[in-house]
């Protein structure tokens, strides 16, 4: 009797272990099915390179180039801010800060990661948007620039945590070797530690990018949601995620517009798959030093 129960439980455990694969396949299949029927009707090239996203008008135009550029612009902007700050903070936390301060900082970063994106969006709308509008003398503060700043805050905890792990996993003997040769602590950190931790830092950047591309609520609230090709970072933009979130409610179930949103989701899925896969490769590399 006991053996039967044991093997029943082990079967359940095995099934749960397989579920992750099932879900990925399911999500992929589902997005592919809906997206593919859209591509067949509309044409994949026209979809990716079309300059105009007029989903609700008649005749509708489903060109996601402005959306892709919007996502890209915000992502680049956010990473330009988040990567240097994140990596430098990680260096500070792991190499310089005394233990007590390090624990406090790490707790704060954990709290930062926990703040819901709607709250970040709200703060952005209330404080940052008017500020950007006034200081750069723009018609509106709802721009890719404001979005980048807020999204940078959301990527920073990811980047810090992963980089810090990578930096701390650099073996002590590397540092001792450099210090013994008379290098200052900073020279050691810059020339030895940073170099050894590089794969992990790249992975952290990748994961930060993944987080920014996928972010929805804050971006929808701050970037102005104008679906045209942006000319500068001070233009309002609309990202792929925000398009899905904003338009799904009004799209007719099963219609062309509805399926076009699944097609966007499919593009997002593909992008994040590649980004995360690469991050994982770099993380694997880091473990082998």
């Amino acid at each position: 009797m006991r053996k039967i129960i044991d093997s029943a439980i082990e079967t359940i455990i095995f099934i749960c272990g397989m579920l992750s694969i099932v879900f990925v396949v399911l999500i992929f299949g589902f997005l592919f099915k809906e997206g593919f029927s859209f591509f067949r009707n509309f044409g994949i090239l026209k979809f990716v390179t079309g300059h105009f996203w007029y989903a609700a008008s008649d005749p509708a135009s489903f060109g996601i180039l402005p959306l892709i550029l919007g996502s890209t612009l915000v992502t680049i902007g956010a990473c330009t801010i988040a990567v240097p700050i994140g990596v430098m903070s990680a260096l500070f936390i792991s190499e310089i800060a005394p233990k007590g301060i390090r624990d406090v900082l790490k707790s704060l970063i954990e709290l930062m990661a926990a703040i819901p994106s709607v709250v970040i969006g709200l703060i952005g709308v209330i404080t940052l948007v008017p500020f950007v509008k006034n200081i750069f003398n723009l018609p509106t503060g709802l721009t890719a620039f404001s979005g980048s700043i807020m999204l940078a805050f959301m990527a920073i905890p990811t980047i810090i945590t992963i980089s810090e792990d990578a930096i701390r996993s650099v073996p002590w003997k590397y540092r001792e070797g450099a210090l013994a040769l008379g290098a200052t602590k900073w020279q050691t950190v810059r020339r030895v530690v940073l170099k050894a931790a590089m794969p992990g830092i790249i992975a952290a950047t990748m994961l930060g990018i993944g987080r920014v591309i996928g972010e929805t609520m804050a971006v929808m609230m701050i970037t102005g949601n104008a679906a045209h090709i942006p000319h500068s970072i001070f233009d309002p933009v609309r990202t792929m995620t925000a398009t899905i979130a904003a338009e799904m409610g009004e799209a007719v179930r099963g219609g062309m517009h509805y399926r076009s949103l699944f097609a966007i989701a499919f593009v997002l899925f593909a992008i994040t798959f590649i980004v995360n896969f690469m991050a994982d490769l770099f993380l694997g590399k880091n473990k082998n030093i």
Binding site: I21, F23, V24, L31, E34, G210, I244, A245, A279
Partner: peptide, 23 residues
Amino acid sequence: IKLSIVNLAGIPSVVYGLFGLGI
């Protein structure tokens, strides 16, 4: 399995929303 987990972790939340709606 491990690759699937990494991949699941990276899918944007709004895509999950869409998937949940469909399924």
